Simulated assay, not measured.
Amino acid sequence: MTDHARDLEAVREATDRLLSAMGEFDDGSVTEPSFLPGWSRGHVLAHLSRNADALVNVLRGRPMYASSETRDHEIERDAPRLLPEQLADLSKSGAAFLAAAAEPADWSRTVTLRNGVTDSASRVPFRRWVEVELHHVDLGTGYGLEDLPDEFVTRENDFLAERFAGHPGVPPTTAVTEDGRIWTTGGGADGPPATVRGTATDILGWLCGRRDGSALTVDRGSLPALPPL
């Protein structure tokens, strides 16, 4: 069972790490490219702030975003801001999310996210944790996939394997680590089953689109091309 309270504490800690890391940079750094194609560091920071607002909406039964166009406009609007304003916004919006999530609620209820995706309310804190951790990596502060908490890596691999399960563009795929952890995914596309081996971190990098999978060993078949998240 998902422990949403424990995940909220992980969100708090991850947000503090990100704010501390970006606090070492100067104003010019926000216009520099992030590791996400087409996005500066300012875009990533703006997205994280507006995502916190959006998840408050989700917890309170409102649409996550007014529209995709509104979401994109707000990120573009906020991306050029100076670093102190970016960090103040992220701190304030992140605290507002934690406060909303601390309110008494039925955590077993179903909530609606972007594009009509539904999930248990109890998984919303984990979804926020994912946003903060992976986008911290994208900011290029020196915090890499190998720095992610072990629990996070395992759970995000679980989550992404579930997300791609049965996907029409992904053949049956099994990912295996040296210590025997196994994730199965895909299965909705024709083609021979694939078995890939590597560290849990390298598997995560491939599943979340941050690495090309070249560090993985393919026992049979070929490394499937995964759809974007």
Rank of each mutant, 00 (worst) to 15 (best):
R127Q: 09
L134Y: 01
A96Q: 11
L113F: 05
K92C: 02
S214P: 01
L139V: 10
D7A: 12
P192A: 14
G187L: 11
E24N: 06
A225V: 15
S120Q: 13
A21T: 06
E103F: 04
E151L: 08
H47M: 08
L145W: 00
H73K: 13
G38Q: 04
R41Q: 06
N57T: 02
A95Q: 14
V44I: 14
A121R: 09
E76K: 12
E156F: 09
A88M: 03
S49L: 01
D119T: 15
A5L: 15
I182W: 01
P37N: 10
S122Q: 13
E69F: 02
I182G: 03
T199V: 05
A21V: 07
R17N: 00
G186T: 06
T201Q: 11
H43P: 02
S20H: 11
T184N: 11
H136D: 00
L59F: 11
E9R: 15
G205W: 11
D72T: 10
D219E: 14
S120P: 01
F159N: 06
T174K: 09
G188M: 02
R197C: 04
A102N: 14
G140I: 14
D72V: 01
V56R: 12
A52P: 01
P37D: 14
H73Q: 14
A102W: 09
P172F: 11
Y143K: 04
T70M: 11
N57G: 09
V137W: 00
T31I: 04
E13N: 03
E146F: 00
E103H: 03
G180D: 06
R210I: 12
A66R: 15
S93M: 07
F152R: 00
A121V: 11
D219I: 05
H136N: 00
L207Y: 12
E69Y: 03
T112W: 07
L223N: 04
A105R: 13
V153I: 13
V153Y: 01
A101S: 13
L45Y: 03
A46C: 02
I203F: 05
R210Q: 12
R41A: 08
Q86W: 05
S91T: 12
R211K: 14
P193H: 10
A189N: 09
E146Q: 13
R77M: 07
R17V: 02
A161Y: 10
S20D: 13
C208Y: 02
L48T: 08
G188D: 02
S108P: 00
M64L: 06
S49T: 12
E156L: 13
L139A: 07
L18V: 12
L204F: 07
I203E: 06
G180W: 08
A200N: 05
L90Y: 08
L45G: 02
C208G: 02
V11T: 11
R128D: 02
T201S: 09
G144W: 00
S40T: 15
G23H: 02
N51P: 00
L36S: 09
S91Y: 01
I182H: 02
H4I: 03
V30R: 08
F97Y: 15
G94P: 04
T174W: 04
P171A: 12
V153E: 03
L90N: 12
P168H: 05
L160P: 00
